[in-house]
Design a protein around this nucleic acid. Structure first.
Lengths: 252, 252
DNA sequence: TATTTTATATCGTGC
DNA sequence: GCACGATGTAAAATA
């Protein structure tokens, strides 16, 4: 039986290949510390010269190459990519291919400082609160947060050019479009709202547009006023009872 | 002198703390394989129950918690965050704090399968080609790609509501706004272009708007036509001589 | 599969 | 620090 974790420091190329091979076969998370070169070609194309990086290959095909700074991997491949490897003249090469769009990632391991795998067991999903979806729920529960007499009618309503967050009517029966943003709203948010209002105005008279967000950028406020649109300050709620990620059980 | 890499499998809590301590002190990349719980509160709020994850803490404060699937970390903290740790009753806790916006990430290590650090040396930056910036260069070099007689005048030109990618004139002297997209353009891109055209139309007559991209979504094409805007097919070039990331040298 | 939109988006640039 | 827009954005929801 395989152990849950295996790690070899300063492994020989043959040992690197051995650990990669066992890790891939067993649906483990592979982690390498290595000096390497990276070549990528696909939607764009990049080269990365020799340096020390952390390489992670997940059982779903996700492939991450991390430098010592930043939250983002310097190179990567998304889930569903197919990984392979080779050992020639003492050099280990990793190759990950994504089918559509066609993208290839190649890593040349110059020197490997650590090769490891981790048979991770994880049945929990993230339970997150404070999302835009929860803002929408809040407004449906308490429409007065927008204004007295506001009646929400549709959520995620497709119209000709796009999908409206919330569509409703005000106390005078006017159609009202709400565009929700969980964070400070910018010019893009205003343009989006205007697109919805313009589209609906073609078939309905006097359509109001309200941007619902915790705050506005200076430019967004200017454009909003210039376009005759409105703003209502609402913060995304952090619920006590978090929306739970679906919990997988042994009986799934 | 510290070694470049250190890794201990199934370490005792005291050994975990020892490695974390040395790793943080030496600007190393810390990597843990552990069964853990995670709590996050900041722009949003989340809980993650017990499970096996890969935890990476970088010298710039970036903090990543990866499950066995997906390209994205399930929880994280961006660069600049401050990390601390504690050992109480045999339980190791990690805490990362971001100042603005105020965000706190806490990890409770239930069981640690591997604790490691990696003194990564890396002086290379990614050299990437095929970006929108290179599309813009291409158009300035060869304006006929847009149309005969097109004269590009400004790049990244601030106007009242936003920043135009390329502003120029056609052979008849009409103002022309180009909005560039390196990939298939969507509704959002059309709205952006329309905002620029609307803004400039207030002060200039007959402003043309051209969306420049390798392709359009069906919805984008419909909206573009409805708004009287134009499309020109251009793919981002992959240059032979890549734009090189600034190379740091010993003499920087 | 294609489209649309959100995101604890992150990141870079300019003011 | 804020504002603005790109990203090999990724991921989710939907048709």
């Amino acid at each position: 039986m395989m152990s849950k974790v295996e790690a070899k420091t300063n492994p020989a190329p043959e040992e690197v290949v051995e650990i990669i091979s066992r890790g891939l076969a067993s649906e483990a998370i592979l982690t390498l510390f290595a000096r390497c070169r990276v070549h990528y070609d696909g939607r764009a194309k990049s080269e990365l010269g020799p340096g020390d990086r952390v390489i992670i290959i997940k059982p779903d095909g996700s492939f991450l190459i991390h430098q010592k700074n930043k939250r983002e991997p310097v190179n990567w491949q998304p889930p569903g990519s197919m990984v392979s490897f080779s050992l020639e003249d003492g050099v280990v090469r990793l190759r990950s291919v994504r089918r559509k769009p066609k993208e290839i990632l190649e890593v040349e391991l110059i020197e490997t400082y650590l090769a490891s795998y981790f048979l991770a067991e994880d049945y929990e999903e993230l339970a997150l609160t404070g999302s835009e979806a929860e803002m929408a729920e809040l407004i449906f529960e308490n429409p007065r947060l927008i204004e007295d007499g506001f009646k929400p009618l549709f959520r995620e309503k497709p119209i000709r050019h796009g999908i409206v967050d919330i569509l409703g009517r005000d106390r005078d029966g006017n159609l009202v479009v709400l565009e929700l943003k969980r964070r400070r709203a910018d010019l893009h948010a205003v343009s989006q709202l205007k697109r919805y209002v313009d589209t609906l105005s073609e078939e309905h008279g006097n359509v109001r547009g309200i941007l619902v967000a915790p705050s506005l950028t200076s430019g967004a406020r200017k454009l909003l006023e210039a376009e005759g649109l409105e703003f209502k300050k609402v913060k995304p709620p952090k619920r006590e009872e978090k929306k739970r990620g679906r919990q997988k059980t042994l009986f799934d």
